[in-house]
Design a protein around this nucleic acid. Structure first.
Length: 444
DNA sequence: AATCGCGACAACCGCCTTTGT
DNA sequence: TACAAAGGCGGTTGTCGCGAT
């Protein structure tokens, strides 16, 4: 985490400064020096102690290995949980994370995280457990937004994370906007296949426009969705009815997973990308380890901006390339409007992603009622978790889900309010696509 | 027994920020 | 205000040990 600075390797060697692992003798000298003179003024260590190490190397050695109250050994489960949560909240701010973990160094945390990331990447798992996504934007004076494309079955070993840092004091609450005031966030570029953290700003409203086969009459719900299923119901039912229904629709094999830990189901069994947070006023682009920085702007089709990698690992090159390819083709290359006017998505991941987002949104809107009824809450969690694994063709389930929430359910920010059907001379596919891309904010 | 892959860890590099003059 | 030095940070690389093949 430290070192170099103004002193090049050649210069150090020319000055007779040592590199490489520290010996116990050097450690003893440094420890004794700090004991006598205290921390700081590290460049004076060499002069005053005879230690042939540059100041930064001394500081690093002291901070990471010699200073008192350091905790050694593996991270505890609690510490791991904290790290994951902090990373979801802060990104690669190792020093800040370390400040939350007494006795741990930024280097330790960074090493842990990078190792973990690689491991999960190989396993095709998302970086964050599902519940962590809700922590993505905290209450700090700054918040960061990350977008991820997690590995999935179609794109194994591809992982993308772009982090946007808000330098203003914009609060999370002020960054979201209601559906009625459709003020878009500051532009961001997003991979269209990357899903959006529920309740945060907007995402592609690929389901909303010009569909009428299934339309919720409730004005407060105020949006329409279309399903290929021929059945429809405008009856509202309560959440537990939904849960009953969802449970009934789960196949027995899936239902047998009831004993599986809920959180692990949420995080590790997702088969589609389902995390990321959107934010406003993005000003700084940061890229964690193994990720690709934006260095030059490339404008692709559909006004989506993506940046070319520079000096990154091959992994990120691949990720960016995939992202670009998806952007060029557009998610709507798979969208078709059938003769019946139903929007069908050939890429089921898109639909599943939408469904899961909606589930998250609706459930979070009713978190309090769930929490007041632990059994119901547990059931809901179970159903939600298992939803990710059930047959995504089951549109009845989603329909019932939508109908099941009370009329006071707020409209997700990312669902466009219901609009009257367009005139017949409007190409529904074109409308859909333009609507979608219009709502893709950009960065860069 | 040799090799390979992987995880854990330590250390360095280069850049940026802060501080002092 | 400008400059240089010191300190801090994130990214990257190298090494070592261990288990699997």
């Amino acid at each position: 985490m430290d070192g170099g600075g103004e002193t090049s390797t050649a210069a150090k060697e020319a000055r007779g400064l040592k590199k490489g692992p520290w010996t116990t003798t050097e450690d003893a000298i440094l420890t004794e020096y700090v004991r006598k003179r205290g921390e700081g003024n590290w460049n004076a260590v060499q002069k005053n102690s005879g230690l042939l190490r540059c100041g930064k190397s001394c500081r690093l050695r002291w901070a990471n290995h010699l200073r008192p109250n350091l905790r050694k050994g593996s991270f505890t489960p609690d510490e791991e949980k904290i790290i994951i949560e902090l990373h979801a909240k802060l990104g690669n701010k190792w020093a800040r994370m370390a400040s939350q973990l007494p006795g741990r160094t930024d280097n330790e945390i960074k090493n842990y995280w990078n190792t973990r990331m690689k491991r999960r990447q190989r396993a095709g798992l998302p970086l964050y457990p599902h519940e962590i996504q809700h922590l993505g934007i905290g209450n700090d004076d700054e918040f960061e937004i990350r977008c991820f494309q997690f590995p999935n079955q179609d794109h194994p070993n591809h992982q993308n994370m772009i982090q946007y840092t808000n330098s203003s004091n914009t609060s999370p609450s002020s960054s979201s906007f209601s559906s009625s005031s459709s003020q878009p966030p500051k532009e961001l570029c997003l991979d269209p296949l990357i899903s959006t953290n529920p309740g945060l700003n907007q995402i592609p409203n690929m389901f909303s426009p010009y569909n009428n086969s299934f339309e919720n009459d409730n004005k407060q719900f105020g949006f329409s969705l279309t399903f290929s299923s021929s059945s429809s119901s405008n009856e509202l039912c309560n959440p537990d009815q939904l849960l009953e229904l969802m449970s009934e629709n789960l196949d027995t094999n899936v239902a047998s997973k009831k004993d599986i830990d809920v959180l692990s189901l949420m995080g590790d069994h997702e088969t589609i990308p389902s995390y990321f947070s959107l934010g406003l006023d993005t000003t700084v682009l940061e890229l964690p380890s193994n990720q690709t920085p934006c260095t030059s702007n490339i404008m692709h089709d559909n006004n989506v901006h993506l940046d070319s990698p520079a000096g990154n690992s091959g992994l990120l090159d691949a990720l960016l390339e995939e992202s670009r390819a998806l952007s060029r083709g557009g998610i709507f290359k798979d969208a078709r409007v059938s003769s019946s006017g139903l929007c069908e998505f050939q890429d089921k991941r898109v639909k599943m992603d939408f469904e899961n987002r909606l589930i998250d949104h609706l459930s979070s809107s009713h978190q309090s009622s769930f929490e007041s009824n632990s059994n119901l809450y547990e059931k809901h969690n179970e159903a939600t978790m298992l939803k990710a694994t059930v047959d995504d063709d089951d549109d009845d389930m989603l329909k019932s889900l939508l109908n099941s929430f009370p009329s006071t359910t707020p409209l997700p920010d990312w669902v466009e309010p219901h609009k009257p059907p367009p005139s017949s001379n409007v190409d529904p596919v074109a409308s859909l696509g333009s609507s979608y891309w219009r709502n893709i904010p950009r960065i860069c």
